[in-house]
Design a protein around this nucleic acid. Structure first.
Lengths: 326, 326
DNA sequence: AATGGTCTTGTAACCGATTACAAAAACTCG
DNA sequence: CGAGTTTTTGTAATCGGTTACAAGACCATT
């Protein structure tokens, strides 16, 4: 209880911990040296009173606002729901801090102003954006597995393995992976799929597709009409799963009676009549971890990365295989 | 020239116009009375020095930040690119003003904190959100044509008319409208389509569909396979146009050789191999007009609305009709 | 114990606005 | 023309932080 009707200020903290504003400020920003005992005491009070510095006041003092750039891999406005959710999660953290989110064009060399830091999605090996930022002296954090940088990523391969195991456990032995492609994410997920399938020597098909609904629809429909058959389908994204489901329905098949489907991402409120079995990513946690790393990157920490665990969500799109063995 | 390396402050204005900070502040906020001569002089200096108050400093004084709520009609995360672009345009204006954008759930009654104002998309006649906001005393502005409120909307009917005329001028007489549905927008655009078609007594088909890519794909494919024929198609959104194009291609048809297609929205960088002929909405202007109206609503002006003109963008998806007459 | 050098902390000015209050200027009127 | 009002304007405190600078505490030396 003790719900503060008004948020505590730095003065409250100073008073409550018996030091001056200046010292509290130093503790917060870790600038000058503060005695360990004092620091601990102040930190404790800050935590107890749930104090957060007022962004307006900080910006005023700093004479400049903080900005965080967001660099997607394309300038395409057809932002995926995943990206929208990610951006929203990010915003939920940055807005109260007074940090402004900047949508950057894929071509970073034409940034109007340098942001305080940049978040890069879908960086690839030797991505030109990385070297550019490095020589511009702008800290960067990658969303996606990458060596020698700050990065955070969902456990794509592990998640794909989980999803595929779900199909295998339901007895499916004719599997298909929807989403085969060159992107890092697609490959990691495909690897997880194949690793799981190999454990029981299941039959596997690879259907090339991007992450979109339409891409999933066309790939599945085309493959099926060409005679490709499977009873269990693992789609690399919830969107392509939606497309796949639509295509299978249009082909007169029953979900999950004839074909079981598992997606990836865990998007809420999909436009489907039944719950999709999927692998849920903890987007809020990915976002907050990314921000923690941004902090480390800014204060010159040593690069590190973190995998965020994923979780299988059981829906209604997986059923036992028709001629189910064992 | 005379590019100010540093933005002018209220003190600069005070000095340059020979008055005190207090007076300048009063001029800016129109609070207390200021002599007309003084006001004019200060205004002139403000304009000349291109002064804008520092949002951080204002928030600090006001002891509370300004927030603008955004209410879409669904909680669906599959945000359309249109909505993403709109939000982005809005942000471009609000961020420098220190106004924070809040994504509201469709159910407004459960807002955590009341925003300074709310923007409502897709409000319908007797929308419960409107009455709720009214009794909560929160100013609201609607995106979409609506009587007795502040509103701003693209000229849907006029734009649809323009698009259809384009098809008619190319000689097409067998037309189809993709997107027939209950929403206000869909109906306005359908009306424009029918009005244009009637002028020459063209053949019209109505294909029911939502605004999505997949919706467009399925509706077109299904209709065509059921024997429905047309040489000119007007899609209610660029997204459904993309779906339509994909469907027609999958059916072995040539765009625009066999069927001409016109979209609506004017989204940039569509995932299409050729430029889509479409009706472009001036999203930035809709956003900035909405903000102007928010200002009026807050200061208690009288409700008014504004249509924002649209513009036909000629792409490569309209060709003369096969058996072209005239 | 006095001297000098680190560490740690407090003090006070400042960031760019707003606003209560008081002072000054401009009117009104007898 | 001077007292009393009403405008109009300036002054100074305040919002919640940061930070340069000075002062105080603490330690080891000689």
């Amino acid at each position: 209880m003790s719900d503060a009707l008004i948020r505590p200020t730095i003065d409250d903290i100073a008073r409550a911990s018996g030091v001056s504003k200046g010292t509290v400020s130093r503790v917060i920003n870790g600038h000058s040296t503060v005695a360990e005992r004092t620091r601990a005491r102040v930190q404790e009070v800050i935590a107890r009173l749930e104090y957060t510095p007022d962004p307006a006041a900080r910006n005023l003092s700093w004479r400049t606002g903080q900005t965080l750039g967001l660099s997607l891999d394309r300038d395409d406005p057809m932002l995926s729901p995943y990206q929208v959710l990610f951006r929203r999660a990010l915003e939920a953290h940055t807005a109260p801090l007074g940090v402004q989110l900047l949508d950057l064009r894929a071509d970073l060399t034409r940034m109007a102003r340098l942001p305080s830091a940049v978040l890069i999605m879908h960086a690839v090996e030797g991505d030109p954006r990385l070297s550019f930022l490095q020589q511009a002296g702008v800290p960067a954090v990658l969303i996606g597995h990458h060596p020698a940088s700050f990065w955070v990523a969902p456990d794509d391969e592990g998640g794909a393995h989980l999803a595929t195991m779900q199909l295998l456990e339901a007895g499916h032995r004719q599997l298909a992976y929807l989403g085969s492609g060159p992107s890092q994410v697609a490959q990691d997920r495909q690897r997880g799929f194949e690793r799981a399938a190999r454990t029981v020597g299941a039959d596997t098909q690879l259907l090339a597709a991007d992450f979109t609904v339409l891409g999933g629809y066309r790939a599945v429909r085309r493959a099926w009409e060409a005679g490709v058959r499977f009873t269990g389908l693992f789609a690399q994204s919830d969107e392509s799963a939606i497309g796949a489901v639509a295509a299978l329905e249009d082909l007169g098949l029953n979900i999950p009676g004839d074909v079981s489907v598992v997606g990836f991402d865990g998007l809420p409120e999909l436009p489907l009549p039944y719950a999709l079995t999927t692998v849920s990513q903890d987007i809020p946690r990915i976002a907050s971890t990314a921000l923690t790393l941004v902090g480390e990157a800014i204060s010159g920490g040593i690069p590190r990365g973190e995998f965020i665990p994923v979780q299988l969500i059981s829906g209604a799109t997986v059923a036992p295989a028709p001629g189910g063995s064992s």
